[in-house]
Every structure is written in C-alpha cells, then in structure tokens.
Design a protein around this nucleic acid. Structure first.
Length: 594
RNA sequence: GGGGGCGUAGUUCAGCCUGGUUAGAACGCCUGCCUGUCGAGCAGGAGGUCGCGAGUUCGAAUCUCGUCGCUCCCGCCA
C-alpha cells in the first residue's frame, strides 16, 4: 500500500498557498492532520512545519479512491495537484491558506501511522498529562505549538550569536569532561576507563574555563553552555540546562549590565518586535529583601512590604511588642480593596506564611468606622492612626502583618505578596519588568556544618570597601555579585571575579579551604593568576528560563526539545538505565545492592 | 530528605466520602451511509489488570498499609 517518494520534489509549504497561486500545479508533502470523508468527496487537512492546507479528493480514479480509503490521521502523504480558489462561502478565514485548496491529481502514501495516543493539536497542552507527552515526545513536538516554541528558541539563539559576535565576543567551547569540585551543587560524574577509580564531572557551568580564557587574553567570550547539576528538580529546573555563558576582561559591573541590557534590547527588537526600556531598575539585595521579601521580586505590581516595628512596639499587642523587643521586625502589606476577603481566604494566606516559618499572619480591615477585625483591637487610637498613615490605608483595604526575625518576617510576607499578585491578577501578559539585584552578601552561614559558604561561588570579588572585614566579620562582606530578574524569575547570575592570588586565598580561607587544599584543588587557577590575570567578570543568563519568561510559559520543559521528568528520567528513551556487567568491569565498577 | 495533589477505556475525566446490579461520559477509534466540509453529519459497534502488591470483608475502583509513576511546594540548587 505504501508508495516510494520516487522523483517527486516538494514545490511548496502547505501554509504558504494563497489566492495568487490559483491554477498552479503544486506538490505538497506532509502529515494528515484531519480527514473529512463525504463519500464521493474527501477533504484532507495536510500539515507540514509551515501549517495546514486543505486538499480535496474529488476523483473518479479507482487507484486514488482505493488509497484514500485507507488514509488516516498522521499518515505521511505526497500530493500532486492544482491550486484552486475555494467556492464562495467555503473559505476559511481562520487558516492562512484558507482561500484556496488543492485538487488532488496524484497521491503517494509515503508512510502509515498508528492512531496517535493524543491529537496533534494545541489543546493537548492543558489536556494531556506530561507523562504521555514525554513518552511520545516526538508526537508532542509535532504539534504546531511546540514547533513554534522550538523556532522561537532558534530565533533567540541566533539573535544572541549575532549580537554578541557584533560586539566582539568570541564563541569558544569548553570541555564537558572536567574535574569534580565538591562544593556547590552535586556533580554528575563519569567514570574513567583509562584511569580506573577516577571520575570526570560534567560541568555545573564552565566557570573556571571562562576565567582561564580571560587569563589567556580573549577579553570577550561567550558560549551556549550546557550545565549539569545533580540536584532535585522543579518546573523551572532541569538536570541539564543551557546558559548563555559570558565573560569579559577589564570591565565593571555597570559595563556588564550595559551589555546584557543591549543584548536583551536586541532580542526584543529582532525577535519579538518590541522596544525595551533603556536601562533596567537596580536594587541592592538588602533593599529587595526589605521591600519585597525576596531576592527576585516581581516588579509588575506593588504591594510593597512596609516596616511597622516601631508602631507595633507602641501598640498593646504583646505578641508584636515582644518580637520587636527581642530584635525582630514587624512587616505589613496593604492589599487595596481586599477588605472583602473571607476568613477562609485570609487563612489560606496565613497557611502560606506559616509554610515559610511565620508563626501567624495578623490582619485588619479598613472600614468607614476605622480599623476592624483581626488584631485591630490592639491598635486603637494613636498606634492605629500611625499605621494608617505609614501604610497609607484607605477604606476597603486589608492589612496583613508578620512579626518575626527580620528574615522570616520578610520572606514569609514576600511569599504572601507573590501569591496575592497571582490571585488578584495584578500581572498582564506581555509586560516585562527587568531588574538588577546586586550587592549580595559574599558568604552565608551554614547552620548544618557550622561554617561560612560562598553565596554564589568561590571566585566572586568582594566589594572593595568590605575586603578588610574578610577575616573579622565575613557575614558583613558584600560581593560584586548580581542577578538579573524578570517578572519574579531569576534569569541570570554573575559577578566580578577575583583575579589575584592573595584575595582568592583569603576568600578560600573564610570557607575553610587552607593553602594546601587550595593548591591541591584549584592550583591551576591560582597558578594562572600568577601570570598576569586581568580583572574580569561575567554573567550567565539561563536560556531556557529566558525563553519561558519571554513567551509567558510556565515550565522550561516546554522550551527544551527533550527534557527530563522531575525524577531526572526520560520515559521516551528509558534513561537512566543499568549498564551491563561487561561495561562495569571495564570501568572497574561494582554495583552494591542496598 | 520532608509535605501536598493525581493515577479508572487510546485520551481527558465522573464514580470512591457512605463497600453491594453488567464500572459510566465526552472526545478518539472501527464499520456502513453521505459531493462542500474545515471539531463535518447520520446510524451502528468495539474497547477496562480501576497503576502494582498485600490486608480488612461474605463482597473492594471504593476502606487500610506498602510500593511505583507523574506533578506542585519546602529543603537543596555556588
């Protein structure tokens, strides 16, 4: 029943046919999207990458009729025929090629298809489980919606390469089989056959290599770098992802910001056909935490956190007073018009706050008669007026408050803010608010191990004014560290790097790496610093996340052709899988059961 | 590592709380009819290890325990 392609050559893409093509002889190839059989008259929607065209079988030819009888969804056809205008009233305005159709003169069935497990349509996105979509990824990718996403990805990658090349960046590849470094994320590890008992690691990022390229004098480097991290996954985290890895010599933070801003403007202009504002907002980490309770605030809406500690201390509410007296803070957010919230809605928000370790979520409503409900009885008269003034309360507002350690108060209320943004639909598709967050602490205290860890990585430069505190007060040292945030999603992280051995050794000492260990593990880097390493810095925007945010998507899995599940598996190819004893033996490995 | 949700026909789901006929619906699929459909229409039909295992019970899709898979969140992710 199947035909060979023979000498047939495709003349047009399905969706490209227009009225101008009337009476042209064309040869289309594609998949049967849908079949409408009227007995003597059969319509097929033929689909290729470009889209859909209607072909009509209105033939006496017994050979064609016999073939058509067997044609089903997703059969692969080659169709020779003549374009003709559709009769009046039969045109389809929904379809780009809807003014015309192709009357079939010859037909070849290039391949048959089983009935697909789900229809090759856009509704699949919301209606078919990810499990099935993953297992039949090649069918999921056949859907127009997914093809558009892959094309979007291609367009953006191309725009990035064009722009960075024109700015003098060189794309240079770095190894995938590298040395394992214990700190940071867990490494994916590859056993060595030639050096038994030794392992390569897959890169979490090309960090050290790009720094070495700066030492080597390449000045501006970029790479579409695959990065692998063996950590637990999320909707916006895959075991392997792609970063637009960049590094520059002789630059300040501001210059790196400017390059990334220009890059994004170029992307917006060339791929999305939009203009993006000149330079992005910039907040310090401390200010972001203080005002939004997160280091990646969504700037599309307000609902800022306000510090109410002094006022709360003056109230008659002992729960608040004691928190403030013991060094904690009280923070509040005003939710305009939310006085209509039910008790249940408020309890849901409280549960969320408790999820982030808050002990409770205090609330008051603003009515014509003043503050009411919740904890309002503790805020009679002066404290109540002070709060109304500090929060700029208006009738109909809801005030939500958390009293706790500064960290918990900010983070828990920040989570409430973020939930409210979604719940009250304060964001609009197509609205992009980019934001730089910088001056992160260089170190954070690790309670479990009772030691300081690098917040970003070991190679970030301290802010110059804090360098003297490296040994005396590491917690107070800020780093020349920065994140790029858009709409509440962290899109990039970067830093100015350390380029001097003395400073690098001091930073390593803070996290407990002495000179001997530093030499053993990072000797190649320190050695490179001895040969005239230039000041340098860089940044690495996550490509998959960037695509998701720009496209208004909800999972980076939709922007990766072959992603993995949250457990790091691929139901399609069945990875990871055991390897046979022969392979294990060659590698000198033995599997120990439980 | 911890917590939540889901798992029933090819697909998406209902049924489960309160155990008891032959486990339903929609779409899809198959057969027939049909010359202007575009989610074609009409008539008929097939299709189920109720994720898997154990337990309770006269009787389990339904209750209990375990387990596997997908997913969301916390931890983790420099």
């Amino acid at each position: 029943m199947l035909d060979n392609l023979g000498d047939w050559k495709r003349s047009d893409a399905c969706a490209d046919l227009r009225q101008d093509d009337d009476n042209r002889e064309v040869l289309l190839m594609g998949w049967v999207h849908r079949r409408r059989d009227h007995g003597g008259l059969v319509f097929l929607n033929l689909r290729d990458r470009s889209g859909i065209c209607q072909v009509v079988i209105d033939s006496e030819d017994a050979c064609i009729l016999e073939k058509v009888k067997h044609i089903r969804s997703e059969f692969v056809l080659a169709v020779k025929g003549r374009v003709r205008l559709r009769p009046d009233g039969m045109r389809n305005a929904e379809m780009p090629s809807g003014d015309v159709e192709v009357l079939v003169e010859e037909l070849r069935i290039l391949n048959a298809s089983k009935t697909p497990p789900f229809p090759i349509e856009s509704v699949v996105q919301d209606e078919v489980s990810d499990e099935i979509r993953f297992k039949y990824r090649y069918l999921d990718l056949r859907r127009h919606e997914m093809q558009e996403r892959m094309i979007f990805r291609h367009d953006i990658v191309r725009a990035i390469r064009d722009f960075l090349s024109s700015e003098g960046f060189l794309e240079i590849e770095t190894p995938l089989l590298i040395r394992s470094t214990p700190e940071g994320a867990r490494d994916y590890v590859v056993p060595s056959r030639l050096q038994q008992g030794c392992f390569y690691a897959l890169p979490q990022s090309p960090q050290l290599y790009k720094q070495l390229l700066m030492v080597a004098g390449y000045e501006k480097y970029f790479q579409m770098a695959r990065c692998m991290r063996d950590e637990d996954l999320r909707g916006d985290r895959q075991p392997e992802h792609t970063q637009i890895d960049m590094e520059m010599s002789f630059v300040s933070e501001e210059e790196i910001f400017a390059v990334v801003e220009s890059l994004l403007q170029h992307i917006f202009k060339t791929v999305m056909g939009q203009d993006l504002p000149g330079s992005f907002l910039c907040l310090s980490y401390a200010e972001a935490m203080d005002r939004f309770g997160t280091d990646k605030p969504d700037m599309r809406f307000g609902l800022e956190l306000v510090d109410l500690s002094e006022i709360a201390a003056a109230s008659t509410f002992n729960a608040f007073k004691s928190v403030v007296e013991s060094g904690g803070r009280v923070k509040g957010i005003r939710v305009p018009g939310a006085a209509t919230f039910s008790r249940k809605q408020i309890t849901e928000l409280e549960d969320l706050a408790k999820h982030f370790k808050a002990k409770g979520l205090a609330w008051m409503k603003v009515t014509e008669e003043g503050l009411s409900g919740g904890v309002s009885k503790f805020f009679a008269d002066a404290p109540g007026e002070a709060i109304a003034q500090a929060m700029e309360l208006e009738v109909g507002d809801l005030l939500l408050m958390v009293a706790d350690t500064p960290q918990v108060a900010a983070v828990s209320l920040g989570a409430v803010r973020s939930r409210l943004g979604a719940q009250l639909k304060l964001t609009e598709p197509g609205d992009f608010r980019f934001l730089w967050v910088h001056r992160f602490p260089l170190f954070e205290w690790n309670e479990d191990h009772q030691r300081w860890d690098a917040m970003h990585h070991l190679f970030s430069m301290p802010c110059l004014e804090d360098i003297d505190k490296l040994e005396s007060d590491p917690g107070q040292v800020h780093g020349q560290l920065y994140d790029l945030v858009c709409n509440g999603v962290e899109l990039a992280s970067g830093s100015i790097r350390i380029h001097r051995r003395d400073i690098q050794e001091r930073v390593m000492a803070v996290v407990g790496i002495d000179k001997a260990e530093a030499e053993e593990r990072f000797g190649f880097l320190l050695g490179a610093f001895d040969f005239g390493a230039p000041p340098h810095g860089g940044i690495a925007p996550g490509l998959d996340r960037l695509l998701m945010v720009l496209d208004g998507g909800s999972s980076i899995r939709d922007y990766i052709a072959f992603p993995k599940t949250l457990k790091g598996t691929s139901p399609m190819v069945g990875s990871p899988s055991p390897i046979d004893d022969e392979q294990l033996k060659e590698l000198g490995l033995e599997i120990r059961g439980e």
